[in-house]
Simulated scan of single mutants.
Amino acid sequence: MFVCARGANGTITVPQAWTDRGEAPATDRLSAEVLDASRVLVDALMRRGEQAEGGAS
């Protein structure tokens, strides 16, 4: 973890994996099944966010 000073705005903590100091990215491509599962997850999260804001479900 890195703790970065943001001046008057305080600090932010950033995981090492989010920086160029982390491990090298995987070179393997994602399968269609993994991409489909990711889409299902994102859709569910989007619906959850809409419901929390009182939007349409």
Rank of each mutant, 00 (worst) to 15 (best):
Q16W: 00
A5R: 14
D28C: 02
A8G: 03
V14H: 02
V42W: 05
E53K: 14
L35M: 13
S31F: 08
E50Q: 14
E33P: 01
G55I: 09
D20I: 11
V3L: 07
W18N: 15
R21C: 11
N9Y: 01
G49K: 08
M46K: 08
D20G: 06
V34C: 05
G10D: 10
I12K: 05
T19Y: 02
I12F: 03
T13H: 03
R6P: 00
V14P: 02
F2N: 04
A37H: 03
G49A: 07
L45W: 06
G55P: 00
D43K: 06
A24E: 12
A24T: 10
T27N: 04
V14W: 03
L35F: 03
N9I: 00
A24Q: 09
G10R: 04
R47W: 00
E33V: 07
T11R: 05
L30W: 05
R29E: 12
A5V: 02
L45A: 11
A26Q: 14
R48P: 01
F2L: 15
S57Y: 04
A8R: 08
D43E: 15
S57D: 10
N9E: 13
E23W: 00
T13V: 06
V34L: 10
L35S: 02
V3F: 00
S31Y: 05
D20A: 11
E53I: 01
A24Y: 00
D36W: 09
R47C: 11
L35H: 04
R21S: 09
V40G: 00
S57I: 04
G10W: 04
A24S: 14
G55A: 13
G49H: 09
C4I: 15
R47T: 14
V42D: 05
T27R: 13
D20Q: 09
F2W: 12
D36T: 12
A44I: 00
T13I: 04
G10F: 04
A56P: 09
L35Q: 12
A44M: 04
A44S: 12
A56M: 10
A37V: 01
S31E: 07
E50I: 00
E23V: 10
R39K: 10
A8C: 07
A8T: 08
P25Y: 02
A56F: 12
E50S: 11
R47N: 14
S38I: 06
D20P: 00
A44W: 01
A32D: 14
W18A: 15
D36S: 08
L30D: 03
R21T: 02
C4A: 11
R47A: 15
A44F: 01
M1S: 11
A44K: 08
G49E: 12
W18L: 06
Q51W: 13
G10V: 03
G10C: 06
R21L: 08
R47V: 11
G49M: 07
M1C: 05
R6L: 15
E50T: 04
E50G: 14
F2E: 02
A44L: 04
R39A: 01
G54M: 06
S38Y: 14
S57W: 02
V3Q: 12
V34T: 14
E53C: 08
V14I: 15
A8N: 07
G22F: 10
A44E: 12
A17I: 04
F2M: 11
Q51S: 11
S31P: 05
M46V: 15
A37R: 13
M46C: 08
